[in-house]
């Protein structure tokens, strides 16, 4: 079973929930798909012995064969090519490696060369895996797709998704069995939660909500979920102890059997909802 953990905005406890869940379950794999800022390993502390580059193919033009006809530019639906005074410019940073320009070129001037855009690191058993985008690379999807190929060896795959509702998030969660939406009772928490709800509803994925830093003085999230008939799967209380340990890179489940049990219960609840 693949469970994605996401949130409308960053910093709501998405990593706390996903890493704690993976840590509490037997036979589980934690996959950090927040490739611009993977931080799960601050807590899970896996020894990253395996590394694998993520490569994409980008076109290059042989000037000796190019006539400047512009067919490649017209074929590129991503606007990654400009032809100026019969010279071709290719913008690798927005090229989607679709290969259309190469097919369109009448003179065979275009060839494709591999370029590294990111890296996947994992421990030897692959119970921990994260993707990391190289600096200044805008295209996250190739890294996500390569991570996805390496999932599913374990009973439970827990995916830490990037925040928001971008195409990165869509490609992370689209084939998941269940989505856990993490939010906090802050002024923006509800607004951000709605962004995440809209996304999973559009993708027709089953989902439930985890309220992080829950407190009795603000139950706006719980009230909203009740009105909308949305499952609140779990509440993690606001606690100085959790916050203090978090800042030291320690998850609640790493020192408390109580929280570990809560996360095991969370999985049971999810299983109940999806059966």
């Amino acid at each position: 079973m693949k469970i994605a953990v996401l949130s409308g905005k960053g910093g709501t406890g998405k990593t706390t929930v996903s890493a704690s869940l993976a840590y509490s379950l037997h036979n589980s794999q934690y996959v950090d798909c927040d490739v611009e800022e993977p931080n799960g390993n601050i807590f899970l502390k896996a020894s990253l012995t395996e590394k694998e580059a993520v490569m994409v193919l980008n076109p290059v033009v042989n000037d000796d064969l190019c006539t400047g006809c512009g067919a490649c530019q017209q074929a590129c639906q991503f606007n990654a090519i400009a032809v100026i005074n019969k010279k071709v410019m290719i913008f690798d940073n927005i090229c989607h490696s679709c290969g259309a320009c190469k097919i369109a070129c009448p003179t065979g001037a275009i060839s494709e060369v591999p370029r590294e855009v990111g890296i996947i690191e994992s421990n030897s058993s692959h119970t921990f895996m994260h993707g990391k985008l190289n600096l200044n690379e805008p295209l996250t999807i190739p890294v996500i797709l390569q991570l996805r190929k390496k999932m599913n060896k374990y009973n439970h795959v827990i995916i830490d998704s990037a925040p928001g509702a971008s195409c990165t998030v869509v490609s992370t969660i689209e084939d998941c069995d269940y989505c856990v939406l993490v939010t906090e009772p802050t002024p923006f928490g509800l607004h951000d939660l709605k962004i995440a709800i809209d996304l999973v509803k559009q993708l027709k994925l089953p989902f439930g909500v985890v309220v992080n830093k829950a407190m009795d003085s603000d139950t706006s999230i719980q009230v909203f979920c009740k009105e909308q008939n949305i499952d609140v799967l779990m509440e993690l209380p606001y606690s100085k102890e959790i916050a203090k340990n978090y800042s030291k890179g320690i998850l609640p489940v790493q020192y408390s059997n109580h929280y570990k049990d809560e996360f095991i219960k969370l999985l049971a609840t999810i299983k109940e909802r999806t059966s």
Partner: peptide
């Protein structure tokens, strides 16, 4: 024409100016 493109609007707009 590039104003509504999802990506690369600046590249196409630049070509239009040229």
């Amino acid at each position: 024409k590039a104003a509504m493109e999802a990506g690369g609007a600046g590249i196409q707009a630049g070509q239009t100016i040229i």
